[in-house]
Design a protein around this nucleic acid. Structure first.
Length: 259
DNA sequence: ATGGTGGGGATCCCA
């Protein structure tokens, strides 16, 4: 079963590119970020016509996450626990059942720039809540996948020019330490488990010809609990999507699980 | 040091 994460940077602007990729890659499950749409305006028929069940957690103008799945989506929940005052749509969960049950968690982690400042404080607080949720998922000792746009460059080899990101919220030591602390709970990075070498990216800025110069960063990650990691067969990044018509600035990252 | 591009939707915010 192929499960992908894809920050599409606006569903309205990306409907064609997303459908082209779905038709070619045929993933069973897709976790979407930055749909930038309220639930009522999400073009769910586009995906239902292709055999996907659709669950959204949107908001006006910004953020917004969704799950597309050919298998039924059960026990859907919206919003990352830990702060009732947080109204930003950045987290959605659901369960699919294949050979075994798999809990899917889709996330759009705060960007955090400029740092320092209130946006960076929000990012770090959000990562603390993510840590707590990940710990609970691990304690359940079941297969779970926590994937999305983490807005964290975990290590120097995850950037073409790490020195350019030294003062950026995506690469500050505190951001990387918070990510590592979550990983160190016992999660497996599905892409890095199979592709440890440098030079793999999931985001290229629209500006300054970043794609043409391959000036990318790897910030979209798929983390697996041990029970899910045991099912990992393959993983990859569909980088070619960045060279398509009206592309997102991110590309799909996927994992194949024996589910 | 600056400005480079793009989406959303309102005359500016966010990335």
């Amino acid at each position: 079963m192929k499960i992908a994460t894809f920050n599409i940077n606006g569903i309205k602007a990306r409907a064609a590119a997303l459908c082209d990729w779905l038709d070619a890659a045929k993933p069973e499950v897709v976790l979407l970020q930055e749909i930038k749409s309220v639930d009522a305006n999400f073009p769910r028929e586009l995906f239902e016509d292709r055999g996907y069940n659709v669950e959204t957690h949107g908001q006006k103008s910004f953020n917004g996450v969704a799950i597309l799945s050919k298998l039924p989506l059960e026990d859907v929940s919206r919003g990352l626990p830990g702060d009732d005052g947080d109204d930003q749509a950045r987290w959605i969960e659901a369960t699919v059942v294949g050979k075994t049950a798999l809990r899917l968690c889709g996330l759009y982690l705060p960007n955090g720039n400029p740092a320092p400042g209130p946006k960076y404080d929000y990012k770090l607080a959000w990562m603390e809540r993510l840590h707590d949720r990940a710990r609970a998922l691990l304690a359940a000792e079941e297969a779970a996948l926590i994937a999305g746009d983490y807005n964290v460059i975990p290590q120097p080899e995850d950037a073409a020019r790490p020195e350019a990101w030294e003062k950026d919220a995506l690469y500050l030591p505190q951001s990387r330490a918070a990510f590592r602390r979550i990983l160190n709970l016992g999660l497996t990075d599905a892409f890095r488990a199979r592709h440890p070498e440098p030079g793999h990216y999931s985001f290229w800025d629209y500006q300054a010809g970043a794609w043409q110069r391959n000036d990318g960063i790897l910030i979209d990650h798929i983390l697996l609990t041990p029970q899910a990691a045991d099912l990992l067969k393959d993983s990859g990044i569909d980088a070619h999507v960045r060279g398509g018509e009206k592309p997102s600035d991110h590309v799909p990252v996927w994992a194949e699980l024996d589910l």
